[in-house]
Write a protein that binds this DNA or RNA. Structure first.
Lengths: 226, 226
DNA sequence: GTCTATATTTCGATAGAC
DNA sequence: GTCTATCGAAATATAGAC
C-alpha cells in the first residue's frame, strides 16, 4: 500500500475517463452518467454507493462503513480501491464537474448561431443535468469544503470554465445587441444560481428534467432579452 | 440535565424572541441580526460561535469543542446552556427562518400597491438578507438534513410561508395582467433559487448586499413581466 | 481482493468538585 | 455556571490470514 500503487490506479481511471470524454462516447459521460470506465466493478460499486450516501447525508455524516455496506463489502475492502474517504469524494467531484462542463460545451455547439439560441440551449442543458443527476450534482455543488486544498484547486479550474460558458454567451449577446445586461458578472452568477440550486431541491416527483430545463431557459432568456 | 429544565430555558428564549418580532423592535431582528434576546451572554456567545462554525465547516464537521472554544469556555460548559449540539442547530435554524420570513413580510407591506412593486421589494429584501447574513443563511439553507424530524417539521412550516410570499405576488401579477407566467410553482422556485443560492457563494468582497438585491429584483421582474 | 480483528483517535456527553 | 477528568461509542484506517 502507498502512493505508487494508488497513483497508478488513479491515473488509469483518469486516462480511460479522458478517452471517453474526448470523442469516443461523449453522450455516455454526459446523459445519463455511466461509470463503466471505473474498473474493477467493486471500485464502481463503492463509487456509486458513495455518491448516493454523500448526496443523502453529506460527506461528513457518511461513514466508510456505510459506503462499504452499500457496495456489499467489509469496511476494510474499501481501502484496496481508494486510499481514503476524501479521495473517493475527489474522484466523484472531478468526474461530476467534468461531466457538467462537457454538457455545456455540447450545448454551446457552433450550429446554434445566435446568442439567444446558445443561451437557451446552455441553460436548458445545465438545468436538466442538475435535475437528472441531482445526486452527483449535490456532491459537486455542496461538498467542496470537504476537499483537500489541492483537490479543491483542481475542481475550481473546471468551475471557472463552467462560469465562462455562461458569461461568454451573455457577452456575445450584449455585443450584438440582442441582450441588455447592466452587470455582466452579477447576471452570470444569477443565471448559474437558478440551475445550480436545482440540485438542492429537485426530486424525481418534481417533474421531467427536460421540461424544467425548457422553463429555465425561457426565464433566463427573459432576464437578459433586450 | 433533563427535559424540564431544558424546556423552561428554550421557552423563555422563544418568548422574548417572539416579543421582539411582534412589534417592539422588528428592525433589530431583521437587519442586522442581533441576538440580545439570547440570555445569558454565555449562551449568546455559544450561539454566535456555532453559527460561524456551522457556516464555515458544516454542522457535521463542527465539534462541540470547537463551538465551546469560540465562546471561550470548556467543552462541558456548553451543556449548561444547550442540551445537545442538535438543539443549538435547531435554535439557530428557527431564529434564522423567522428572521427571513419577517424580512419578506416587511417588504410586502400593503403600501406597495402593484404586484411589480411588491415583487421587486420582496426579491431585493430576500436577496440582500442572504448576502448580509450569509453565515446564518448558509445554516438555514444547507443544514436542514441535520435537524431531528420534529425540528425539521417546525422549520418546514416557516419555509412554506416564505415560498407563499413569492407565489402569492406572482399570482397577483398574473391575475391583474402585469405578469406572464406559464408555470407558477416552477417560476416561484426559480425566483427563490436565485436569492437562496446567494448564501452559497456570497462573500463581503462580492459587493454591497443592497446593490445585489436591486440587481436581482430587476432580473426577477424581467423574468415574469408581461 | 476480501475477510476478521483491531489499533488509534476523536467525538458527544456526563460526573462531580468548586 | 465553570472547571478538570473521563466515559462509552463510533470514526478512519491498518494488520495479517486466506
Amino acid at each position: 500500500m502507498g502512493p505508487p500503487r494508488d497513483l497508478r490506479l488513479i491515473a488509469k481511471r483518469l486516462l480511460s475517463f479522458t478517452r471517453l470524454v474526448q470523442g469516443v462516447n461523449v453522450s455516455a459521460v454526459t446523459d445519463p452518467l455511466v461509470w463503466e470506465h471505473v474498473q474493477p466493478a467493486a471500485a464502481r460499486r463503492l463509487l456509486t454507493g458513495a455518491i448516493d450516501a454523500f448526496a443523502e447525508r453529506g460527506y461528513q455524516a457518511t461513514t466508510t462503513r456505510d459506503i462499504a455496506a452499500r457496495a456489499g463489502m467489509s469496511p476494510a475492502a474499501l481501502y484496496v480501491h481508494y486510499p481514503s474517504k476524501e479521495r473517493l469524494l475527489f474522484e466523484i467531484s472531478l468526474y461530476g464537474h467534468n461531466a457538467a462542463l462537457e454538457v455545456l460545451r455540447s450545448a454551446a455547439s457552433p450550429d446554434r448561431e445566435t446568442p439567444s439560441e446558445r443561451l437557451r440551449s446552455l441553460v436548458a442543458a445545465f438545468t436538466a443535468w442538475h435535475a437528472r443527476h441531482h445526486t452527483i450534482a449535490r456532491v459537486v455543488q455542496y461538498e467542496l469544503a470537504a476537499l483537500s486544498p489541492e483537490h479543491l484547486a483542481e475542481v475550481a479550474t473546471i468551475r471557472r470554465a463552467i462560469s465562462s460558458q455562461i458569461e461568454q454567451v451573455l457577452a456575445d449577446g450584449v455585443a450584438d445587441g440582442s441582450f441588455t445586461v447592466t452587470d455582466l458578472p452579477g447576471t452570470t452568477l444569477a443565471v448559474l444560481s437558478m440551475s445550480i440550486d436545482v440540485a438542492r431541491w429537485y426530486t424525481p416527483h418534481r417533474g421531467d428534467p427536460e421540461a424544467l430545463g425548457a422553463l429555465y431557459a425561457d426565464l433566463a432568456h427573459r432576464m437578459v432579452q433586450a
